[in-house]
Nucleic acid binder design. Structure first.
Ligand SMILES: [Mn+2]
Ligand SMILES: [Mn+2]
Ligand SMILES: [Zn+2]
Ligand SMILES: [Zn+2]
Lengths: 147, 147
DNA sequence: AATAATAATGCAACAGCGTTGCAAATGACA
DNA sequence: TGTCATTTGCAACGCTGTTGCATTATTATT
């Protein structure tokens, strides 16, 4: 695992540093879209917030993470498919649970194509669906039945 | 027109004030999604920026405008369909032009339904397509042909 | 293992966005 | 015209994200 992280950094032509290792580690461990604040919560005693900002920017540029559309602030998630500096492809759906607040990539759910008006050209699409994730829907149902 | 604006405010149980009239006027005139900064640009010598923020918040709550999800910041657009305090419905596509920067509602382009994983429940969807609007695509083509 | 070249970090300072509390001004309505 | 609830401007604040610069760490080379 330690090795995987440094391999990933090396593959993207990035030096191995404490902050980069831990940010990447956090993304792998939490497996959900994270904001800068989430990361700062975990890492602020070890690294300066500016360094975390710069790490996110670097990871974005190198194709290690992608930006996730959100109604309140910027979030980022690991790129599973193989993205590079030039070639990003993230045409999957993102889901945000209004109950637990988690935002996740639905990697195998493709954004459906839409027929744009004449002359328009699409370059990138972002579909965010908000609602209840399976876990929260279930526990809310349980709570409702109790009454 | 003057009358239309005050009618709209009245219909939503809002007092007619200079700031509200001019913000609504600006939305009608520009016919595109606006950020707080856009409005401030037009109105800052007449109204305090806090008042503009509060006007946006009020219009949002009353269903006069809706929030448009954007990759860089908050934008707002007029509700065309009849929204109220309780009942918002904005399942149309939003398009942002990467050339001219304008974000627009494609009112008659419905967000297609997607089949979520078992247990998930959708409550709201936001589809943002980025690319080139018809005007910009055309003028870029013209420029390319000139070489 | 020591060195040199390059890149990353921490710190301080800053700009922009959005919110809040409060006193003064204004709009609605009788 | 007067009353009362609402809205406004102002000052202050917190949060997010950026920049410049001196210091430190990583990497490649010897
Ligand atoms: Mn994703
Ligand atoms: Mn819209
Ligand atoms: Zn949930
Ligand atoms: Zn355009």
């Amino acid at each position: 695992m330690e090795q995987t992280i440094n391999d990933t950094l090396r593959e993207h032509n990035l030096r191995s540093t404490g902050c980069r290792e831990e940010v990447l580690q956090t993304f792998l461990a939490r497996a959900t879209a994270l904001s800068h604040g989430d990361l700062e919560g975990d890492l602020k005693d070890r690294f300066d917030r500016v360094t975390i900002y710069r790490t996110l920017k670097t990871f974005l540029e190198k194709g290690i993470i992608h930006k996730v559309l959100d109604d309140e602030g910027a979030r980022y998630a690991l790129c599973r498919e193989h993205c590079t500096e030039d070639d990003h492809h993230h045409d999957h759906v993102h889901f945000k649970c209004n109950e637990c607040g988690q935002t996740n990539c639905l990697e195998n759910l493709h954004v459906p194509a839409v027929q744009l008006p004449t002359g328009y050209r699409a370059q990138e699409t972002n579909l965010l669906i908000q609602g209840l994730c399976a876990d929260c829907a279930k526990s809310l149902d349980g709570r409702a039945r109790a009454f």
